[in-house]
Every structure is written in structure tokens, then in C-alpha cells.
Design a protein around this nucleic acid. Structure first.
Length: 450
RNA sequence: GGCCCGGUGGCAGAGUGGUUAUGCAGCGGUUUGCAAAACCGUGGACAUCGGUUCAAUUCCGGUCCGGGCCUCCA
């Protein structure tokens, strides 16, 4: 019994979480399409589901976390052409960049990170099952899923076929039997990546890879499927259709978890809107850990407005935690903290709890610092020693550590001689180099400010 | 056009049918040669209009405003 409760999009309410197999959890999250660097909006689910997986690992003996990489997609083809590069080298470069971004944000690698192009056979197998059982049909070189064959289609997103047809703004391809039918396989010309198949040389539609890879690594029915709100329809709806029909199961995953958007001035951050900040850009101004903190500062289902100011505040909040926790050794997270995270991953309240513990530490509670460290581990925060945190960004172009320490010694002598104007000059000089001096009974410490 | 979500103090952001989180910023203290940190105290909010209730920011309904999905999207 974990006590974990999650808001399940399928049920539209918070539910107690129980895995299919006791002590074991399987979770799948939709990963990036590797045609471009990820932006802060893409980073939110990475960080949140990283925390969710850490919490699951805390509760359960084994957790199988699968996060795919989509490396076959028409956006990739287009971008490779625009950049006069090959699809392969674009993908390899983007994956390498992606992994660096994850490291900077302290997002742990999943247990399996399957790539679509390495699972074409599994996709074709699932497609042939769907065709054989009448859920899919061939038309004009395409294979399409027939939504009319699945009465439950639309359950996840809460829309009926009638509504969708009523609101349809898409041009419907003439070969579709039904406007809602979606592509499982499509023909490739000689310039496009393609694989031989019973339907001719072609490439997979977007959705089938997740169904095929989830089945391979997690089985026909698994516990949690996660992703951004914008994947509910059509992506996840279509995954469910493919998987449930091919596998003859009631569910693909039992719990569907969706994170809210990162917004900019209240509007969704997205590639197409052009209002995005890449993680790489954000990292030129901010610490990865501060960005990570900012991404969990709002509840995961609520929108999160991204701004430099927001990240700077996160940095200040982290400073406070680092000062309080220092280099204490992590003990165990208090049950109160676990309860907070168990309640649908309430990270803002979890952070508030850490700040409460910081206050306790400052007031003399000897256990609180170790508890802060332990809690922070679950959130993937406070990964540095306080020296690393407060000094690592020090700009050493003008002053070496030895020079800083020499100046501190000169200042100490000046202070001993009550020569405070000299002491203040040294403080000023260091301050203008971004070094802040901290006097205490034990002597003078220094840190990089801001 | 259809469907969905949200509006909390200067800002960010939890939560609750009655006792007003947390961070940053403000104010007054303690401390400090200075600075920082820390501590103590303090001001300040639940979009709006109705309804239910002994009591509503919290439940219900209308209004206004904002956002999203229906098309690639985390």
C-alpha cells in the first residue's frame, strides 16, 4: 500500500493508485521527437515524471520506466532538408543535445529509451493484427485505423465522434472511410525514409510507435501512461484505440497522467507559436537546478508561467534551502512529506514543507537538515555541496581562489587593526567581481553572489 | 461552432465550509564595525452577482475575464 493518489484523466478524478502486479510498476511517458532542441515546456513533463518515478521507486520494489524517442517523423525529414543534413545526423545530434539538457536538469534516464526506427517490425506486427481483425484497412497505399470499429473511441478525451465531426476543421483525405480514421502506415517516396512492408515501402504514422513499444517493454496492459495535456487528443486516444483493439484488452494503461502547459505571459509555450525558450538558452542564464525548481513550483496539472524572474526567485529559494541544509547527510523523508507527494504529487506543498524544515533547522532542530536532504533527493534537488552551489559559478577570469583568499586575509588584518575603511575597500573590490564576503564568528567565508 | 479548464494578498503559488500555507518583495525590531545570513513582530487575498448554510474564498448556478483542445504540439 503506497497511499499514492493520482488524478486519472481516464476517470477525471483523483484515484488511489494500485499497480496490476503488486510491488511492481510499469510507466510509459511520451518522449521527444528529435528534430530540434527541447524547450522549457517540453522539460516540464521530464522533470515531473522524473519525480513521479522517484516516488514510485520509493514505494515499490521495481519500477520499469519507458520513455521513447521519436526518430521518424515528417518534421524531422523537413528539418533535415532545411539544414542540408541527413536525417540520421540530425537525429543523433538532437538526441545528444536532449541528453545533455536532461543531465543539466537532473532528469534521470529512463530504464528503457526505445527509438521508433528500431521497432518498425513490432509496429508492422501490430498493424497486421489490426488489419487481420478488421480494425484497420488499406487504402491508397495507406493503412488506416477505423474508428467506427471501436465504440469506446473518444473516452479518454471525453468527446464523441459526432462532436468531432461537428467541429472538424481538418481536410479529410478522400481515402478515409471516416473523418476520424488515422494513419498507421503511409507510403514513402524515394526521398523519404521507408521500410518494406506488406503494404509497400512506407513509414509508420505517429501513434503506432508508442503502442508497439509499450507492449514490448511493459506488456499489453500496464500501470501509468504519462504525457502533456496536448497529447490527450489525438495521440493518446489513438494509442488506446490501437492497443486495446490489437491486444484485446479493456485498457492500455490503467492510469493516465497529464501535465499542464508552461505558458509565456499566459499563453502556451510552443514551437509553432514561436514563444519558446530552449532549455539550452535558459541554461545560459540560470542554473539547471533553479530551472528544475521553477518547473515544480506550480502543481503539475496547473499552468506554469515561465519567466526569468520566476527562475531567479527559484534560485533564491534554493539558496535558502542550501544555507539551512548545508552538507548534512540525508536521513529519511518524514511521512508528512511523503503524504504530500502522495496526494497527486503536490510539489508546491512539498517545497513549502522543505522551507518549514529550513526554518526549523535555523532555530536549532538538529534533525531537520538531514530530513531536508532526504526530501530534496526525492525531488531531485540539493544535489550539490554548499560550496559547489555557492561558488561553482564564480567568475575566475579576474580573480583566482588564491587571490580571493589573500584579499580575505588582508582584510582580516585590517579589521584586527580596526582599519575598517581598508576592510570595506576590500569588500567592495570583491563585490565588484561578484564575490560576496560573509563574516561570522568562525571567520570570513565567500560566495558568488546571484 | 463543439467540448474543457482556470480566476487567491505587490509577485509567484498551495489549501480550506468556521482557526488566513510557503518563497520573493514591504514595514518595525534583535544581531552585526560594515555587509550578509538568521530570528522575532507586522501589514496585505480569495474576479463578480445570486443561491444553499448558523457560517462560503471553499458547495451550486449565472455573468465577466483569461487559457486550452478540436490540426503538428510536452
Amino acid at each position: 500500500m503506497s497511499g499514492l493518489r493520482l488524478f486519472n484523466t481516464l476517470a477525471k478524478e483523483k484515484q488511489n493508485f494500485t499497480p496490476y502486479v503488486s510491488h511492481h510498476v510499469g510507466i510509459y511517458a511520451c518522449g521527444p521527437t528529435v528534430y530540434d532542441r527541447i524547450h522549457v515546456g517540453n522539460a516540464r513533463p521530464l522533470v515531473l515524471f522524473d519525480i513521479l518515478v522517484k516516488l514510485l521507486r520509493y514505494h515499490y520494489d521495481t519500477v520499469m520506466y519507458v520513455r521513447n524517442i521519436t526518430d521518424v517523423d515528417d518534421k524531422i525529414n523537413q528539418r533535415a532538408m532545411e539544414n542540408s543534413t541527413t536525417i540520421n545526423s540530425l537525429c543523433e545530434q538532437t538526441i545528444a543535445d536532449f541528453q545533455n539538457d536532461c543531465i543539466a536538469l537532473n532528469v534521470a534516464a529512463p530504464d528503457v529509451e526505445p527509438r521508433a526506427t528500431q521497432h518498425i517490425a513490432e509496429m508492422l506486427e501490430m498493424i497486421s493484427e489490426l488489419v487481420a481483425s478488421g480494425y484497420a484497412y488499406e487504402a491508397s497505399g495507406h493503412v488506416l485505423f477505423s474508428v467506427a470499429t471501436m465504440p469506446e473511441y473518444g473516452t479518454l478525451s471525453g468527446r464523441s465522434m459526432d462532436e468531432m465531426i461537428a467541429g472538424a476543421r481538418v481536410e479529410v483525405a478522400p481515402y478515409k472511410k471516416d473523418p476520424g480514421d488515422f494513419v498507421l502506415w503511409k507510403p514513402s517516396d524515394t526521398t523519404q525514409p521507408g521500410w518494406d512492408s506488406p503494404y509497400g515501402r512506407g513509414r509508420p504514422g505517429w501513434h503506432i510507435e508508442c503502442s508497439a513499444m509499450a507492449r514490448k517493454y511493459l506488456g499489453k496492459e500496464f500501470d501509468i501512461h504519462a504525457g502533456g495535456l496536448d497529447l490527450i487528443f489525438p495521440h493518446h486516444e489513438n494509442e488506446i484505440a490501437q492497443s486495446c483493439c490489437a491486444n484485446n484488452t479493456k485498457n492500455m494503461a490503467r492510469y493516465w497522467v497529464h501535465n499542464g502547459y508552461v505558458t509565456v505571459n499566459g499563453e502556451k509555450m510552443s514551437k509553432s507559436a514561436g514563444n519558446f525558450t530552449t532549455v539550452a538558452d535558459a541554461l545560459t542564464k540560470h542554473r539547471g537546478e533553479a530551472i528544475r525548481y521553477a518547473l515544480m513550483a506550480a502543481h503539475y496539472r496547473a499552468p506554469l508561467d515561465y519567466s526569468d524572474g520566476q527562475v531567479s526567485e527559484s534560485k533564491q529559494a534554493l539558496d535558502r534551502l542550501y544555507r539551512a541544509a548545508g552538507d548534512a547527510v540525508a536521513t529519511n523523508p518524514p511521512s508528512e512529506f511523503i503524504d504530500i507527494l502522495n496526494d497527486d504529487l503536490n510539489t508546491p506543498q512539498a517545497l513549502a514543507f522543505l522551507h518549514q524544515k529550513a526554518k526549523d533547522t535555523n532555530k536549532g532542530d538538529k534533525n531537520a537538515a538531514g530530513e531536508i536532504k532526504a526530501c530534496a533527493e526525492l525531488l531531485g534537488l540539493l544535489n550539490y555541496s554548499s560550496e559547489e552551489w555557492f561558488r561553482s559559478e564564480a567568475d575566475m577570469k579576474d580573480l583566482s581562489v588564491a587571490e580571493i583568499e589573500q584579499l580575505i586575509e588582508e582584510r582580516r588584518m585590517a579589521r584586527l587593526g580596526k582599519n575598517f575603511s581598508v576592510a570595506d575597500e576590500i569588500r567592495q573590490r570583491l563585490a565588484s567581481n561578484g564575490i560576496e564576503l560573509l563574516d561570522s564568528a568562525d571567520g570570513t567565508n565567500w560566495q558568488k553572489n546571484n
